[in-house]
Design a protein around this nucleic acid. Structure first.
Lengths: 133, 133
DNA sequence: ATATAATCAGTAATGGTTATCATTATTGAA
DNA sequence: TTCAATAATGATAACCATTACTGATTATAT
């Protein structure tokens, strides 16, 4: 079997994701980790992000377009994406687990989870738009 | 201004998407359209899929991983993705528009829509698994 | 018919991600 | 504390989906 070995780079990558809540892309994590490890490789960042996601310590986000994003918060929760600035924020509302059982009625198979992204315009962009009227 | 010109290739691409309900990738559409237009270009397929999506005549799907998929049914509806075989199917259940207003309470901005993907194992894959026990 | 501009096929370029490989770091046992 | 075994790294090449470019073709309005 394959045993996991400790690595300082992986720690830094995980710490980075736990510390920030803006759901960064692999490249943004790369920039961040380079402050501590100036010659970390982008491949290392990708490799560890995938490893951590497979281990269930972080989550992958596919917000509809653009590169993949990552989330250090693995508790089930919803996200809001601003059509204007593209920023991705957490929505502290309860996840509707009963949607799974409801959906299961219609599909014949077994449903264990769902992912929901909400779209619209964030507060900041609304304010900006109002100023320019 | 830019006026839209009729094109037989675009027709074929749209027809392909209206005819099938498996949410094909651009490449799958390409293969399909080649039966009628043997030397259609993949670039033409992409260009028209994007054009049709921007016009609102088809929808883009980002099902979490792998290439983008397209849907000829533009009415709001949910999708189910099988973790085993990857197939994407429609769920004929009502879309919960009130989730938007509920979510809006938590985000400060303005929410106009949401996208939900359900995950699990489809009927076919469940049956196959049962046979191999 | 002709002019104009959208569309095309073919192909090169791009961007995000993964694979390869020689070197380095971590770990458990001698 | 060494040492061997092997996981992880940095650097770079390869990969794949998608987009951009180009000169030829086709649809439409006059």
């Amino acid at each position: 079997m394959k045993t996991l070995k400790h690595s300082r780079q992986r720690d830094a990558i995980l710490n980075c994701l736990m510390a920030r809540h803006d759901h960064p892309t692999a490249d943004a994590v790369y920039v961040s980790v380079r402050e501590e490890f100036p010659n970390v490789s982008l491949g290392t960042v990708y490799r560890n992000l995938n490893l951590l996601a497979d281990l269930g310590e972080i989550r992958r986000l596919n917000c509809g377009s653009g590169p993949e994003r990552f989330d250090g918060d693995t508790r089930p929760h919803y996200h809001f994406i601003c059509r204007e600035c593209g920023q991705v924020t957490d929505l502290p509302m309860d996840v509707l687990d009963r949607m799974n059982t409801e959906a299961q009625e219609y599909c014949g198979g077994k449903i264990d989870s769902h992912i929901t992204y909400f779209y619209g315009i964030c507060r900041d962009c609304l304010d900006k738009a109002e100023k320019h009227l």
